[in-house]
């Protein structure tokens, strides 16, 4: 059942199901994203979480920060965990063996929503196989990648989501290195190419866009992938209070474009139309440099010998932005 959220005041009526006194860093985007996702619905939610910051900081014995059922198994299996909880739910529903409170919800048209949260390490890297398998099989669940572009939980090592030029503990900038050498993996397109009915990129700073996409995702039948920008005060090295500002810089520079890819499928699941919608267009597209300058992980790029990486960044962002616009115009 879609929750009516016309504006922020209405959204603030939500009673959180994610609890305080968890151990996430002050100013962590992960928490903001989790709140916005859970508060996007009044239906029951069941959560699976990959090993990572969110997991180690919200379920440290003897405390849980979850007012919904929650499971963590390992680093690489959040997708199959959520997918199989979904399968177990479907079996029990079919057999008429759901617990009474859950059955009551179902009868009211409020089916549980099953959500996996994982970082970029658990998504782009070690959990990719499980994620790909679960999407191919078409289970009914939502997978939210909390993308902070680094293995933050283990002390800031590079992942395949780390963007070029970022200094991490395994791609440090040094006398002869500008930091990470590879461009970030295009996870949104990769997941859309799995044929998932709904795939979107979001930022917690654009809460309404995020909530709307999550709501759309909850309404479709099949696996949904949400790639959420998660500014990391610890590893991007900006001040905790700047989390939202840094997120906005990412969005307004089009480093983190907000868009969705919808694979329209007929009753047999055959995709007859794919469309890409850009859901936020910055009024003034700001230079990438401003985004980079706000994060000390890129500080070394401003040295003369590394300036070419900033130029490369701008080119890459402009090219992607043009590509997205072309796809949107072409309706593919």
């Amino acid at each position: 059942m879609v929750k009516k959220i016309k504006n922020l005041k209405e959204f603030s009526l939500s009673n959180d199901r994610f609890e305080g006194a968890n151990l996430m860093c002050p100013g962590c985007s992960h928490n903001i994203i989790v709140r916005e996702v859970l508060n996007a619905t009044n239906d029951p939610v069941i959560v699976a979480t990959a090993t990572g910051c969110l997991e180690v900081c919200t379920a440290v014995y003897p405390k849980t920060s979850w007012d919904v059922s929650w499971i963590h198994i390992g680093f690489e299996n959040a997708a199959v965990a959520a997918a199989t909880v979904s399968a177990a739910y479907e079996v029990m529903k079919r057999k008429g063996k759901l617990p009474p409170a859950t059955q009551k919800m179902v009868d009211e048209g409020r089916e549980p929503k099953i959500v996996a949260f994982a970082g970029d390490g658990g998504t782009y890297d070690i959990g990719f196989q499980s994620l790909s398998g679960a999407f191919e099989r078409g289970h009914n669940f939502m997978y939210v990648c909390l993308d902070n572009e680094v293995y933050a939980n283990t002390g800031g090592q590079r992942s395949s989501s780390t963007p070029i030029g970022a200094s991490t503990t395994t791609s440090p900038a040094g006398k002869v290195s500008y930091g990470e050498k590879m461009m970030k993996k295009s996870m949104v397109e990769i997941m859309a190419d799995h044929g998932a009915p709904y795939v979107a990129q979001v930022s917690p700073s654009k809460w309404k866009d995020l909530v709307k996409k999550v709501q759309k995702g909850f309404e479709v039948n099949g696996p949904v992938y949400i790639n959420a920008q998660s500014a990391c005060t610890t590893e991007w090295k900006h001040a905790p209070e700047d989390t939202i500002e840094v997120s906005d810089l990412g969005v307004d520079s089009c480093v983190w474009p907000l868009y969705e890819i919808i694979n329209e499928r007929d009753e047999h699941g055959i995709i007859y139309n794919t469309k890409l919608n850009i859901t936020y267009r910055p009024k003034n597209k700001i230079p990438v440099e401003e985004y980079l300058a706000a994060q000390p992980r890129f500080r070394h790029l401003f040295k003369p010998e590394n300036r070419h990486i900033i130029d490369l960044w701008q080119k890459a962002v402009d090219t992607k932005w043009e590509y997205l616009q072309k796809r949107e115009e072409a309706g593919v």
């Binding site: 959204f11 603030s12 959180d16 305080g20 996430m24 928490n31 916005e36 809460w207 989390t243």
Partner: peptide, 8 residues
Amino acid sequence: WVFCPDMS
């Protein structure tokens, strides 16, 4: 309210 990471 919406941007508080800690439900505070």
